[in-house]
Amino acid sequence: MAPYSQYLIIAVSAIVLIAITLRTIRIARTIRLQRYIASDAPGCHHTLGSAGCSILCHGIDNIEDIQHLLSDEHCHYEVIISLDADTRPKLFDEIITRYKMIRVEAPDSSEFRHKAIRRLYRSRQRCFRRLVLLDKAEDSPYDDINAAAAVSSYDYLLPIGRGTLLRQGAVSSLAIIISECRHKPIDIVYSHADGSMLFRRDAVASLGGFSADIHRRIAHSRRQTTYIPIFENFRPLPREYIIRTITPALLLTTAAIIIGGYQAALIVLATMLATLAAIRHTLLLTDEKCSLTAIVCHILHIRLFFYPRNFFLS
């Protein structure tokens, strides 16, 4: 094997290994810090100011997910569920009955572009006052969360997709991040650990609402990154995205092996094993299941470290 190609493969492998190791170390340190302050977080509601967020839910499938979302101890947040009563009548009625919801006037907002909201519901019971349900025709995920944003009352928005749940204390962690960013204008908080994004309401309104490229449209100086994992279960990436990303990587790896020979194959194999070990360690720290899907998604999240990603919902 020509020496330059060997050096190139070693250099690329080293860069990948260093990037993944650094990311693993940062996630591990952030999780240890999060666990350290976890005992203080529930008692700090009154001192975190008015920092709170509206959780915008699209694609809720079962009522237990709603119960889980409502169980965070932080007091300044609300859960807004966008659901189509025509296509999911049974679930809709179950939510209304269980949480004693009443129909109220829907706010008329021109800040966000969305299809008309048919009905809006709030709970009569004080213990469920943070739950809001809106009935609108099912459309794209962006349209659904735009409608949810239009009825939100907090300054920050956390959109979540189908089957996504929050980790314990996630809202408190977000509130702490928001309170620490008060001295500088932040429009988005992006978590490298799981790809979650928290948006400032006014920033989203000024951009006309949520869209696939909203992350790219926000200025770099107004972004805040964190390594705190927010979601409990790993957000699955779209299949086309995975294929589009994995295929060139596999082709490049094959080409490197063909050009470099068995030595290149050994180097690439060692890099992959070290990468998988680092990912497994990170996933174990976040209590995730080490399934193949989780590992592949984790690799892709690492790749997105180098440039802003599209905003998507499952």
Binding site: I96, T97, I102, R103, V104, E105, P107, S109, R124, V151
Partner: peptide, 20 residues
Amino acid sequence: AHSATLLKSYKRNLEWHPTL
């Protein structure tokens, strides 16, 4: 303007529900 519409959404029960 937004606060006015938000406050309205807290005030009136628009629909009578047999069980609630």
